[in-house]
Nucleic acid binder design. Structure first.
Lengths: 202, 202
DNA sequence: CCAGAAAAGTTTCCCCTGTAAACATGGAGG
DNA sequence: CCTCCATGTTTACAGGGGAAACTTTTCTGG
């Protein structure tokens, strides 16, 4: 039993169980202000048990954030691959996947981008965040190579795109993109404004 | 003495003093995770005194956020009025003012846009946030009238612009807009991408 | 001018949280 | 079988938010 580190001793992979409980709590609530004791309680262990699996509360939060980035990366990557062929439409699909993720997992999304999950303090978290970012980067590079996107500095494109998508996700989570105000598809409309600047003129 | 509610009794406007202390703490730190007791301590009163001026901690946070929005509105409005005449340049000036505000008051900015300062729970906070948003709205309307910006739905333009500015502010605060990665003026470069879509073609 | 009354502050209290330390347990290897 | 270590549990402590009771000012009306 040495292939994975967390196997089954007393509880049977409490590490995973705690993460699952916490993820469940995050999914339910708009905020991620759960307490470590509550997680332990719902998992059916004593309030000190988590400390055998996570150095402190922040370590658990960072691990949750990391899982969130992995999931977001998968969601975005899948949206890109199964989307329409046009680069512009791929971009929209990826952005919508990110925004949908935020709306369906507001607590987790907020945690991922909060200062409490300090990416600098955890190489694994940083790596996961960069991998997610990489999905966007690769799309921009490919789109630039095939002439869909303008030949501007990739980092500038990436910063603009990422700011836009993340900003829209935030607005959407806060319910500030109401249809009666912004029209039938607010996200699409906002993305089109950016894409008109991003794409080459037709 | 019935014109304003908080005058001077024992302390002499403890209401304001608490806000000032908290603002000072917010300015110093990257995060706004201060405690109410710490604010009271630094103001030189007992830990229960604040409850005579704020219903609870959240009420204080909301008031701080409200002040933040007022300041941000002033900063952006001033940037617009004292900036160059071109609509496009005005937009850039306003955006840079917002981003600079975020960088100089990261704790306050994070508080303003965190879920803890629930705008729905406080009409005054909501009003202040809307007023700040109004600066952007009026600029877009004016720019559209004089033909600088495209005749797209104003809410769509606003959503895109706001998402972009707020997203860039977040990235800037997190130190993810480094010059060596994005070039000499990362914000400008990213804004230009958006503005190329926002402005009418030349 | 002098009671109240009400405002503003303080103390005390309770329950919660994060976290450390001491203690218990049970399964794996000698 | 027995011992060790990973895994849990109990106990303990500092600190926070907030309620309640008490005290001290300041204001107000008679």
């Amino acid at each position: 039993m040495s292939d994975t580190k967390h196997r089954s001793y007393h509880h049977g992979d409490l590490h995973r169980a705690l993460l699952d409980t916490a993820l469940g709590m995050l999914a339910a609530d708009q905020t991620w202000t759960f307490t470590l004791r509550e997680v332990a309680r719902r998992t059916g262990v004593s309030h000190a048990a988590p400390y055998k699996h996570f150095e402190d509360k922040d370590a658990l939060l960072r691990e949750l954030a990391r899982i969130g980035f992995v999931r977001l990366e998968q969601a975005m990557a899948q949206a890109l691959s199964s989307g329409p062929p046009s680069m512009r439409e791929k971009f929209v699909a990826g952005a919508q996947a990110c925004i949908a993720f935020a709306q369906h997992n507001p607590g987790l999304y907020r945690l991922m981008f909060s200062a409490d999950a300090d990416k600098g303090a955890d190489p694994r978290l940083h790596e996961a965040a960069m991998a997610t970012f990489g999905v966007l980067l690769r799309l921009l590079e490919k789109g630039q190579q095939d002439g869909s996107f303008r030949p501007v500095s990739i980092p500038a494109l990436a910063a603009a795109s990422w700011a836009q998508v993340h900003g829209l996700a935030m607005l959407a989570m806060n319910g500030q993109l109401l249809e009666e105000k912004v029209g039938p598809d607010p996200v699409r409309a906002a993305l089109d404004v950016l894409l008109d600047g991003l794409c080459c003129k037709v």
